[in-house]
């Protein structure tokens, strides 16, 4: 079975007023199905850029990104949109729920873009909200619930398309530590029970410990890639 993620000498430059700035300088990485990977690194190390490319929101400048053995560098935008909708589930730091929509509709929204019928959309959304412990709030609006609950809804939304990969960008960044632990336990359970691959960006070591593997970026390069338990920091 091919790895879910395979990066070969991936590079990304940004054009700024001061000229081209290399953010990723050649990253090679494989993530197998069912792995739970935490990505860490100081700000400016390229974590967000890496996540954007992994999420097919941005394309690399050099090297290759194979998602389930498909090279995304060659795909047109509608195909990228299809991958984002079907293969990848996103969880953001700011939850990013649509405020005017009920929780049920928020969770069901990705299914709209896959042209799945209303009855099935609603059934799947209700089921997932139940799984994250919010089955009784299907008709509520996101503005009426707590941050921790909103992040659970966002996780349910990420799962609704039955993706093979979940990308989470600082998912506990806006939550208190108790709620953050609950969210991380939820991620762990999803990873363990459903064998969904999870890649999670965090700057908090206690959050990273929920993962099995740690990838540490520094100045656009891999500074560490190994078990979380073996990580003792990198030299400055």
């Amino acid at each position: 079975m091919p790895p879910v993620i395979q990066l070969d000498a991936l590079t990304k430059d940004y054009l700024t007023d001061a000229g081209a700035v290399a953010v990723l300088k050649g990253i090679s990485l494989k993530v197998a199905k069912g792995e739970f990977v935490a990505v860490m690194g100081p700000s400016g190390s390229g974590k967000s850029t890496l996540m954007n490319i992994l999420g097919c929101l941005d394309i690399p400048c050099g090297g290759h990104y194979l998602l389930n053995a498909t090279d995304i560098g060659t795909l047109p935008e509608p195909e990228l949109a299809r991958l984002r909708g079907q293969v990848i589930g996103f969880v953001f730091q700011g939850f990013n729920l649509l405020p005017r929509m009920s929780l049920g509709n928020n969770v069901a929204l990705p299914l709209v873009y896959q042209r799945i019928g209303k009855a099935e959309r609603l059934a799947r959304a209700t089921d997932l909200l139940g799984q994250v412990g919010l089955g009784h709030l299907v008709a509520s609006l996101p503005t009426r619930i707590s941050g921790g609950q909103q992040q659970r809804v966002a996780i349910a939304r990420a799962l609704v398309t039955r993706p093979s990969l979940i990308l989470a960008d600082e998912p506990t960044g806006n939550l208190d530590s108790h709620t953050g632990r609950e969210i991380m336990e939820l991620f762990q359970r999803i990873n363990r029970d459903q064998h969904i691959t999870i890649v999670l960006v965090t700057h908090d070591m206690s959050v990273a410990r929920y993962a099995q593997r740690l990838v540490y970026l520094k100045d656009g390069l891999l500074a560490y890639d190994g078990a979380v338990a073996d990580f003792h920091g990198v030299e400055a």
Binding site: P78, A81, R84, G85, F90, N96, L109
Partner: peptide, 9 residues
């Protein structure tokens, strides 16, 4: 957000 969860152009 819509684009991230699968809406195309």
């Amino acid at each position: 957000i819509r684009m991230a969860i699968g809406a195309d152009r």
